[in-house]
């Protein structure tokens, strides 16, 4: 057992966990943040993507101990109160989800993609960069539309700040 201390969605948290605990299990089982999903056991689906120190990573492929001291943001941490994050709003408006299982990971990966590419984002880049996120429902088309839409909204939101 080890004590893991980290900041999750702006809140300092501390948990006593077995050393084999994955970050995703710390989030879901110890912190009750069940928005982050587990969709596979081969590190391939991306349903578990969260931001660790600003980078979108698979929380099923990181030990909780590796995240000790880190700043973690999950899908629960991106809205401002009742106001959805522009990426969440764009997914809703563009019908970017059906069952919603892949959506938390899609959104966290997509925010990372927009942050990295900014205004230079095009459809081909979005499709390529979402290769680590698998969706069984949508056929990706509306997800890609949502990400491109959100890229515009995030630029506007940034400019307004």
């Amino acid at each position: 057992m080890s004590t893991v201390k980290l900041t999750v969605n702006g809140r300092a948290v501390s948990a006593d966990v077995e050393d084999r605990t994955l970050l995703v299990h710390l989030l879901r089982d110890h912190l009750n943040l069940t928005g982050t999903h587990v969709g596979c056991d081969t590190s391939q689906c991306g349903a578990c993507v969260v931001h660790v120190d600003g980078r979108a990573v698979k929380s099923c492929t990181m030990l909780a101990g590796q995240a000790d001291g880190a700043t973690v943001v999950t899908v629960e941490g991106i809205a401002r109160g009742e106001e959805l994050h522009p990426m969440q709003a764009a997914f809703r408006d563009n019908h970017g989800l059906q069952c919603g299982f892949c959506t938390p990971g899609m959104i966290m990966s997509a925010i990372d993609i927009v942050q990295r590419h900014g205004g230079k984002l095009d459809e081909a880049t979005v499709r390529q960069e979402l290769e680590g996120n698998i969706c069984r429902c949508t056929g990706y088309h509306n997800i890609v539309k949502a990400v491109l839409d959100a890229a515009g909204r995030m630029k506007v939101a940034q400019a307004a700040e």
């Binding site: 590190s43 991306g46 993507v49 980078r55 979108a56 990573v57 698979k58 492929t61 990181m62 990966s109 990372d112 993609i113 960069e129 290769e131 680590g132 996120n133």
Partner: peptide, 9 residues
Amino acid sequence: IGDPAVRYC
């Protein structure tokens, strides 16, 4: 290599 999340780690 892999996808962006794999490349970050």
